[in-house]
């Protein structure tokens, strides 16, 4: 067992997933806010998000190849695209769930639009929005295994190697570690959600 190699793969895997999730958040939340606030933008954004949900991650990775070549960049781009739909959909849901009466009251009390957003809409939308981030994180972690297929490395390499050379031990090492990371993320996000979530 080559430990430095193992930790290297774990680190690459986490970096991949974290970068993709960060990208998904940065792109997904504003899109979700747009969809929830502008009626004309809602259908196209949600349609795109739902389509994005249907396309298999491996297909997205393959499409990335001609655009970015092989390596880390296309893997991050593909996984990032994968992270966007659940975040967009939940951000839209979260902001739509904010009671119109709360916004009316906030405006009537003299809050500016920015204050209404920060002090009323965001905290009320946050629990649902965060659930989307959590879903995206799990999806990204589960799918980052595919990055090895386009030469981005990570724990997926154990699986590709294990399959090619028929070494079950390697397969289990890769799959088991990925499963452990996914579970840890699920619990970690669950814990963070309970901590961050403002009581409603």
């Amino acid at each position: 067992m080559n430990w430095p190699d193992f930790w290297q793969h774990v680190a690459t895997y986490l970096e991949l997933a974290a970068a993709a999730l960060a990208g998904g958040i940065v792109a997904g939340i504003p899109l979700g806010i747009l969809a929830s606030h502008l009626n004309f933008a809602r259908s196209p954004i949600l349609l795109a998000a739902n389509l994005g949900r249907v396309i298999p991650s491996l297909a997205v990775l393959t499409f990335m190849l001609p655009l970015f070549g092989v390596g880390l960049a296309p893997a991050v781009a593909a996984l990032g695209l994968l992270a966007i739909p659940p975040i967009v959909i939940n951000a839209d849901l979260g902001f739509r769930a904010v009671p119109a009466t709360a916004v009316d009251a906030a405006r009537g009390l003299g809050m500016t639009n920015a204050q209404i957003f920060r002090q009323v809409e965001w905290p009320l939308a946050f629990p649902i929005l965060f659930t989307g981030v959590r879903t995206a994180a799990i999806e990204v972690i589960a799918s980052a295994v595919l990055a090895a297929f386009i030469g981005a490395g990570g724990l997926g390499e154990y699986i590709t190697e294990g399959l090619q050379a028929n070494i079950p031990r390697l397969l289990f090492l890769g799959a088991g570690t990925i499963a452990a990371i996914a579970l840890a993320a699920e619990f970690g996000f669950g814990f963070a959600q309970r901590r961050l979530e403002v009581k409603t």
């Binding site: 009466t101 709360a102 009316d104 009251a105 906030a106 009537g108 009323v120 009320l124």
Partner: peptide, 10 residues
Amino acid sequence: VIQAVGLFAH
């Protein structure tokens, strides 16, 4: 003051 009260739940 409005009928729906509009208190902030959080």
